[in-house]
Design a protein around this nucleic acid. Sequence first.
DNA 1: GATCCACAGGAAATAGTGGCTT
DNA 2: AAGCCACTATTTCCTGTGGATC
Length: 408
Amino acid sequence: MPLFDRDTSIFSDEDVLREDYQPESIQERDEEIDTYMASLQPVINGAQPRNLFLYGKAGVGKTAVTRYLLSHLERDVDAYDDVALTVVWLNCNNLSSSYQVAANLVNELRPPSQQISTTGYPRQTVFDMLYTELESIGGTVLIVLDEIDHIGDDDGILYELPRARANGYLSSVKPGIIGISNDLSFHDSLSPKVKDTLCEEEVHFPPYTAGELRSILEQRAENALYETAYETNVLSLCAALAAQDTGSARQALDLLYKAGDITRAADETTIRESHVRDAQQALERGQIRQGMMELTRHGHLALAAVLSIAISDETPARVREIYPEYSAIAERFGTKPLVRRRMHDHLSDLAMQGILKRYARNHGRSGGQYYEYDLDVTLELALDVVDELEDVDISLEAVRGAKLRGLR
DNA sequence: GATCCACAGGAAATAGTGGCTT
DNA sequence: AAGCCACTATTTCCTGTGGATC
């Protein structure tokens, strides 16, 4: 009897449900694709491409549609000798300024041996390097800036690049920018100069409806799951849950995948509604958990402080009470505590991420106004995470106390 | 209606890191 | 080695705020 054997009851090809899987056709986005294609038409004609701005929430198909259309475009453009197309794809996650975007673009275009660092050069130098690289490629260059909202309000590059030709920095290249944003308000926060140039064409991707999600799931399920592996209402449920929450195809697919995973782990052969609900919980928990793990050191310390107070059942607590606890924990771990003001920023961050709850209090002349914080996750989960952290810990006695009272 | 509590949170200054240029 | 550049995290300083109390 082998230790591992291949499971043949649920997934026929689970990769089809994974994030990186690219379907050969895109569903339920016909309208958006039409507008998008029209905007790309100048490329085929060998004209200066138009700049394009896509916006919509995460998981509504912006990136998938872009990949799909550009790969077709690259193929179709081969038929014409007078058009040379290059696509440069850059994910702006973690890039917080125009400078960094420019530097990363240069690196995209250069071979690995000639990479530049993302600090150190004067701003204009990096732009010059970028223009030189673009010049040497020539032809039409489409620059896709995915998650462009991460650069915040430093949108200089979005202004520079589209106008580089007009300003005489570029001559043999026809650059086009495709900006993809998950943040709907990013569009409004752009400076007016940029709006004029970048947003010549806009495509808005609305969230998927439950019906649309359902048909996407049906198509994927056909390739990913055995026919007998799921009850018929399972797909509808996944679609409905995802539609209610984010309208994201990613979420719907994750749900289905996780539900299958849970079913398999339970040694059952049919995905049922209850498995989907379990999956939803597990995913939610996983996200929060990951959010907590990825905090900075002082974020962890602040969380540990609130947790420690929560364990002794004294939450919600105001900053005045949390700070000494935080300082004590920090010092116990050889870290110099931050000043109150700064630690409070960390608390605000935690509240923003849904890890802590924050209550505004105002007791007027006799009390003034202040905030109180409490855990917004279960004590159990917080304890679990803080326990796992290498760099922080709350006192063993406290944990033991919590265990004794049956909180775990 | 004026006053005042207790602090939130904005703004500017400073520290610290990593890297370039001469 | 000295002087820049870009960027992030932190400290320091301080103004503004909502409502109980005078």
